[in-house]
């Protein structure tokens, strides 16, 4: 692997990182609007408001960068980067197509991906603590509680797939994939997806940023580019979560003509999942804080454990 090859791969990952979250964001604008009987942005860019997020970005860039007087300055300023960069790193390890179509194949891929995704939540915690604002602090604490509750089912569901494939490497899992893994691992997939949504603090699991009760929680004091980075982190998180669910549970590049069009299959499955993320946001009201905890501990964790048991039994039987 020479330098040029590495540079090309990193460039491609960076490009995907810059483009896909915006595509998801624009899709959210439009899908949400139409699900509510509206049309969404129509003017920016001329054709059905395709450049709305670009315009938003320009607006954010023009805003004054305010740091509250009592805030912990360094931590406050660093938080958006901590929230955003982990998703970029995760994207490097996600295989898109067969035959090494991946930024960097990592042997302990699942470990790497889940650990780094966990770091992203730290950005919200840092922002919540450093803002010197009670709403931010509440949001940060809720984020922490949510992280505690949902990281466990996320890990257990991913562990089930690793058990089934007998490897921790993401490309390795995809190479071992068979179509009947989808029904076999369906419970794990649901748990993983739900827990991932909660990790991203997406509605209906957005109690930590509930804008109508605690004013965006940890992001209350942020404006301008730093706030935009938090928003971008949310959409990058959607991309990463959907791509990971695709790779772990839906067979990634597998599908007709996988040899040539594998990357298209990955992209297609990821987009469908991203649509589901938006769909869930439009359809369901926000879960209360206690309901969040109850769902995690009394539903998702037992389900994930059951999936692991099922995976183990089936694995032993087929051997």
């Amino acid at each position: 692997m020479d330098v040029l090859d590495v540079a090309w791969r990193l460039l491609a990952v960076l490009l995907a990182f810059l483009v896909l979250p915006l595509v998801v964001g624009q899709a959210e604008h439009k899908v949400m609007a139409h699900m509510q009987g509206r049309v969404g942005p129509m003017y920016a860019g001329g054709f059905h408001g395709w450049a709305q997020l670009v315009a938003d970005g320009v607006k954010f860039a023009q805003k004054e960068d305010v740091v509250p007087a009592d805030a912990d300055r360094r931590v406050f300023q660093l938080a958006p980067a901590v929230a955003l960069i982990p998703y970029l790193l995760v994207l490097i390890a996600i295989p898109v197509g067969p035959d090494g179509m991946v930024g960097q194949a990592i042997d302990a891929g699942i470990f790497f991906v889940l650990a780094v995704m966990g770091v992203g939540v730290l950005g919200s915690l840092m922002g919540g603590w450093a803002s010197a604002n009670k709403f931010s602090l509440l949001g940060g604490l809720r984020t922490a509680a949510q992280l505690m509750a949902y990281e466990l089912p996320l890990l257990l569901a991913a562990a089930s797939v690793a058990m089934a494939a007998g490897t921790l490497s993401l490309p390795g899992i995809l190479e071992a994939f068979e179509w009947w893994w989808v029904p076999w691992q369906i419970i794990g997939a649901l748990v993983f997806f739900t827990a991932g949504l909660a990790e991203l603090q997406r509605p209906p699991f957005d109690a930590p940023i509930a804008d109508s009760e605690i004013i965006f929680g940890a992001y209350t004091e942020y404006t301008g580019l730093r706030f935009a980075l938090f928003l971008l982190a949310e959409y990058a998180g959607i991309v990463v979560l959907c791509a990971l669910t695709t790779v772990l549970f839906l067979g990634g590049w597998h599908g007709p003509f996988a040899a040539d069009l594998g990357w298209l299959w990955t992209l297609l499955k990821t987009s469908v999942l991203a649509f589901v993320v938006i769909w869930l946001r439009v359809s369901y009201p926000r879960l209360r804080e206690d309901q969040l905890q109850r769902l995690a501990w009394t539903v998702l964790v037992p389900l994930a454990l059951f999936q692991i048991a099922l995976t183990g039994v089936v694995k032993v039987v087929i051997q």
């Binding site: 139409h34 699900m35 509510q36 009987g37 049309v39 359809s283």
Partner: peptide, 10 residues
């Protein structure tokens, strides 16, 4: 929500 999406917006 899905049915609303398939209908014309108001």
């Amino acid at each position: 929500t899905l049915r609303t999406m398939t209908r014309r917006s108001v």
